[in-house]
Every structure is written in C-alpha cells, then in structure tokens.
C-alpha cells in the first residue's frame, strides 16, 4: 500500500497509523523516545524532591506557603480535558472524518493555551507576591525547572499540533500523515500523564508539608 495514495472511506484501514513500515517505525520509535522522556522527568522529580523547601533563610517562602489547590486543580482539569478531546480527534481520524478531527484538535489546542496562560499567571504570582524566583533558592531553581520543563513540553506540543493541522488542512488524511497525527496525540497524552505526577508530587504533597 502506498502512503501517498489518495484515500476514501472505503479504503481507509482499521489502524491507519500503522500501515506502512515507516509508520510502524515511527510508532515504535516514538514509544521508545517517551521511555527516555520518562527517565528525564524522573530525574527532575528526584532533584525536586531532594531540594524541596531547601532555601537560604527563614524569610523564603516554602511549598506550603506557595501552592493553592484551586488553581492547580483547575489547570489539571483543563489539561485532562484536552487529553480527552485529543482522543476524540483520534477517534475521528480512525473513521476518516478529517473535518471533525481538525475541530477536536483545535479544541485541544485552545485548552492547551488555556493551561499555559494559567501557568504563566501562576509563575508571575509566585515571583511578585512571594519573591520565589528561579534564582532565589535551590527550591526555586528545582521548582521552576521541573514545572517549566513540563510547560516547555506543552508549548512544543502545541506548536507541533498546529503545524500538522495547517500543513494538512487542504489535503485531508492519508496513510502518510495519519501516523503523524497519531504520534502527536501520543505526545500530548504523555504530557498529561507527567502533569498528573506534578500535581500529586509538587502540589498535593506540597500542601501536606
């Protein structure tokens, strides 16, 4: 089966993301890459836990002073929802409904931007109200690095999905671009899972001290 071939609903296979050898390679390679990313975040989490609340003096804010559950919860909900909407998008991809896929991807992107906006607000708040900055303490360095790395992943994921949507807007689905959409959505889920850990380890554990 040729990847470039023009597709119709009748010809569209059950797993369009895994039809060609290139697609299978991409699929597996991306899973492995996510394995490496997992170790990367694990290292950042370990560093964070080692440096949590390690500040130079008593006047520095600690985790229990900083974090507020409502904001973190709202961010979690937005990101989880965006994972769900990306599942819808993939559902429509598998059913060869290009327009609907684009629509749900668009919603995913909007939610992603919402998350990023809240994160920027959050950082701004810590810096201006608590003097908790990247350079103020080891705790600050570790916090902004862990959460910021995640934020950078979100930003990269958004740029990626938008590029795919724009690039393929006029030509619809094919076996060539289906794996690209699929892999991007995998990445999006991964970001979401990492956030769940950040929510638990940084925010929830931060609240209990």
């Amino acid at each position: 089966m040729h990847a470039e071939e023009k597709m119709t609903l009748e010809k569209w296979p059950a797993s369009p993301e895994k039809q060609t050898l290139e697609a299978k390679n991409k699929f597996l390679g991306f899973w492995l890459f996510l394995g490496g990313e997992t170790v990367l975040f694990a290292s950042l989490f370990a560093t964070y836990l080692a440096l949590k609340d390690k500040v130079p003096g008593p006047d520095h804010a600690l985790a229990k002073d900083l974090f507020e559950i409502p904001l973190a919860f709202l961010m979690t909900m937005i990101l989880l929802t965006s994972s769900l909407t990306s599942v819808y998008a993939m559902y429509h991809m598998k059913n060869f409904e290009f327009k609907k896929m684009q629509l749900w991807l668009g919603i995913t992107v909007i939610l992603g931007f919402g998350f990023l906006a809240l994160e920027i607000y959050e950082f701004y708040h810590y810096v201006h109200h608590y003097g908790h900055t990247f350079t103020s303490s080891a705790f600050g360095s570790a916090f902004y690095t862990l959460v910021g790395f995640h934020g950078a992943h979100v930003a990269f994921g958004l740029a990626w999905i938008i590029t795919l949507m724009v690039r393929n807007a006029k030509r619809g689905l094919s076996l060539y671009n289906a794996p690209k959409f699929y892999v991007a959505s995998l990445y999006w889920h991964f970001i979401d899972v990492v956030w769940v850990f950040i929510f638990s380890v940084v925010y929830l554990m931060g609240m209990v001290g």
Binding site: L51, V55, F134, S137, F139, G140, S141, A142, T145
Partner: peptide
C-alpha cells in the same frame, strides 16, 4: 543562568 542547584549557601546540594 544563576540557579542554585549545587550552591550550598542557597540550599543546593552537590551530591545530586
């Protein structure tokens, strides 16, 4: 970039 992961005076830890 001025962070303090390994700067003991600011709470950092070189063993990391």
């Amino acid at each position: 970039f001025g962070s303090n992961f390994f700067v003991t005076a600011a709470g950092g830890n070189t063993i990391i």
